[in-house]
Design a protein around this nucleic acid. Structure first.
Lengths: 207, 207
DNA sequence: GTCCTTCGATACGCCAGTGTACCGATACGA
DNA sequence: TCGTATCGGTACACTGGCGTATCGAAGGAC
């Protein structure tokens, strides 16, 4: 490595983009909207450009290609699949989670449907999807379970604990195929009461 | 309606196709293979034609368009996601189901991943997917649960019974996204033991 | 054996999306 | 204030798949 290269700033592309963070959020929102509406394959650069009223050149200058734009959109919008929840009981937490996921069905559930298969064929996309959507939800649910164990509601080594998050995300993906309609709040609440809580050895709280 | 139209045979297209049922199975197998490998969007008529060494005209003559070909392929190949299972106990049945689904991961699980999102945007495709893959699996699992109830292993009105099939299909769809690998036999067996059976009020059979 | 339909194969026009190039306009930095 | 780089917008060539048309060949039906 030559001295020149060392003294040179490590960023070889000192782009001074005119795109404000707010404008970037518009791009990201448009990308996610199109994903939710039409899926990953139907997302086109021209579609993003026309919806955001920008030139295709801007998109290619800034993000290079469609996968990179999608990855950036996932990373760039800090959207919480689950808000912070701590009701004091595991059952209460899971109920709130069911409500949040069910209510947010119009936001993040379609995103997972849209990206589910595409992510399985692109490691970068899978990574971005997991970091942006799945991992936070997993962490939130696992935190609920851990707090429940700390409070003594369940045993710390309860073998069903491992599956709580997978079950919740699973029915969200499964119900549209099984029953033809999205997993809404009512369904998820019943699922928590009649499947998840019993599997943990808990019973549904008396209404 | 004129008399002529009444006397005319109702089938205006008495095609006498030269495609033998075996040849049709080749087409269907190729379609499903491509779906498993690359997904619904990447499936092209030209790809099917080249893989089966036939002309595109044959495909269009016979099936008309890509969605119809896929629907026909789903209906035309009687592939059992689940074989007939009856071990005498609900736990044993679910174990066998876990084994069958896990072992068949290379066959039908990718199909559901590939068609999951596309089916949500095409009613015909959703219908075909449910009839060919999902409904049989649902019926098989529900039959297991029903037999378990008849034997007195669980109460007939056990509220968790409703969710068994959705739980199983759910984790199959969720695990690749959550953990990055398919739900194999070992995972599904653990899931049955530690999540489904406890939710039904049963415990895992002693190994 | 002859006819007739379908088969496999190819060529064609069409359309949509990709990625690049170019243009005036404009907003930032010096 | 002035230069410059990026912006939005459009045009372009290119690719790839769709669906149709057309061809010789082949295999049943009669």
């Amino acid at each position: 490595m030559s001295p020149q290269e060392v003294t040179q700033e490590p960023a070889p592309t000192p782009r001074r983009s005119k795109i404000t963070p707010e404008r970037a959020q518009e791009f990201y929102a448009a990308v996610l909207d199109i994903l939710r509406e039409s899926g990953y394959e139907a997302l086109t650069m021209e579609g993003v450009a026309s919806r955001t009223r920008c030139g295709k050149s801007t998109l290619y200058r800034q993000w290079g290609s469609k996968p990179e734009l999608v990855v950036a959109a996932l990373h760039g919008t800090r959207q919480a699949l689950l808000p912070y929840i701590d009701t004091g009981t595991l059952a209460g937490d899971l109920h709130e989670a069911a409500r949040a996921i069910g209510a947010g069905s119009g936001r993040d559930t379609p995103l997972m449907h849209a990206l589910g298969h595409a992510a399985l064929q692109s490691p970068e996309l899978l990574c971005a999807l997991r970091e942006a959507l799945i991992a936070p939800a997993l962490a939130a649910i696992d935190a609920m379970v851990r707090r429940g164990a700390e409070r003594g509601e369940i045993r710390p080594d309860n073998p069903a604990a491992e599956f709580v998050s997978a079950q919740l995300l699973g029915v969200v993906r499964a119900r549209p195929l099984v029953e033809g309609e999205n997993a809404d709040e009512a369904y998820l609440t019943r699922f928590v009461d009649h499947a998840i809580l019993p599997s943990l050895g808990l019973s549904a709280p008396a209404q």
